[in-house]
Simulated assay, not measured.
Amino acid sequence: MRTDATRPPSRGLSCYTENLAGYLAARAPARVDLTARSVRLAIDPATGCFSHHDRALNNLPGGRRLAYRGASDAEAALTGIASELAEHGRALVVADSGALPWLSGAAHAHAPHLILVDGCTHDGGWHVVDGFTALFSGGGHQEPFAGELSGAELTALLAFPGGLSEVHRARNALAFGFPVPAPAHETYQWLAEEPGTTAEHLPGGHWLTGPAALEEIARLVLADLRCDGERGVLEDVWAAAQHHMFRDAHLLAADGVLSPEDRRTVDATTAKWRELPRLLRFAANSSRRGRPRPSLVTGAFTVLAELEAAASPLHAAHGYDVPTTLTNVSSHAGQGS
């Protein structure tokens, strides 16, 4: 591995959306603005699945979209990735977050993580960019990375030899807001541009949004803490917090758009989203010690719901969180529409 002298900038987004935003910035610059405006939470109480965006972020200009590809062997995967590079100059690939060589310490778990491959070297290496940054509760941390990997290094961090868990499969399917079909092979996965668009329909029954979604998340968090976090709901909440802080920062950056009172309203929601992961980590640690704090969790989400409700007219007035209709289809969240 060779590290570039300059790290890429980080937008402070989640492990899926950070490098998706980097891809879209080069492919369709206006999509970065759309990413901020798309942020919303929808929860399926029947499955516990999260949808973070009210527009299908994998839809591209010209009636094209990003779709998953998969292979059971490394050679086929590298051939597919090279084909995307040749045609589009970059490719998003699904990496194992726990196997990233630029990770310091330990990640939470081995989970899907999008990284950007944007070049090949003359000796068979690959240039990789990862703008994601995070601190992990176990003491590990990740900083943005740009550099060259050998073919062996790249395939090692892309490999999921046992496939994905049901939780991770559902997250992959809904990473862009609405279901995208999974590939036939999960050992190696990447994204390819193809003709067509992803329908903006959510699967299953009734999905909750707004304050009702935050109330449901509190219930899901408490249930997951009783099971020692096996569902990984805290990871979904952390992603939601990053997305909402990105939304608010994007709105605040628009000079002259907001009055001082409006800015205070947005600042209040940002502060609560920033505080939420730390508070939930404290609750999780307390639960592991046999001292669950359900009122701490429910109280935090109640306050957040009140702040989001107060800011909702402001967001809508400026084109944020103006959701598409949550039309449902009778299929599992991990399947395509």
Rank of each mutant, 00 (worst) to 15 (best):
M1G: 13
W273P: 01
P181A: 12
W273G: 09
V297W: 02
D33M: 00
R31W: 06
L85C: 08
L157E: 04
S337M: 13
A42G: 11
L214F: 15
D236P: 07
A134F: 12
A317L: 13
N58S: 13
A333Y: 08
H88A: 02
V303E: 14
A311L: 05
E186T: 07
A30E: 14
I43K: 00
R169P: 13
L279W: 01
L85I: 04
A25N: 04
D228N: 10
L135I: 04
A173Q: 12
T47I: 04
S97H: 05
F50N: 00
T47F: 10
H315G: 09
L234G: 01
M1V: 11
F282A: 14
S38T: 10
V180L: 15
D118Y: 03
A223W: 04
D33G: 09
A240T: 03
A25E: 14
L154H: 08
R289G: 07
Y23D: 00
A218G: 01
G48K: 15
H250S: 15
G336V: 06
E194Y: 00
G205S: 08
A28I: 05
R171K: 13
T79Y: 01
D262S: 13
G125I: 14
L280I: 03
P183K: 14
A99L: 10
A300F: 04
S14F: 01
L135P: 02
E186F: 03
G105E: 15
N59S: 10
H110Y: 09
E230T: 10
S259D: 11
A311Y: 11
R291F: 04
H318V: 02
D262Q: 12
H206R: 09
D73G: 06
H88Q: 14
A109E: 15
G124P: 03
V39P: 06
A82F: 03
A213W: 13
N172M: 15
A241R: 00
A86N: 00
A305H: 05
S38W: 04
L191Q: 06
D130M: 03
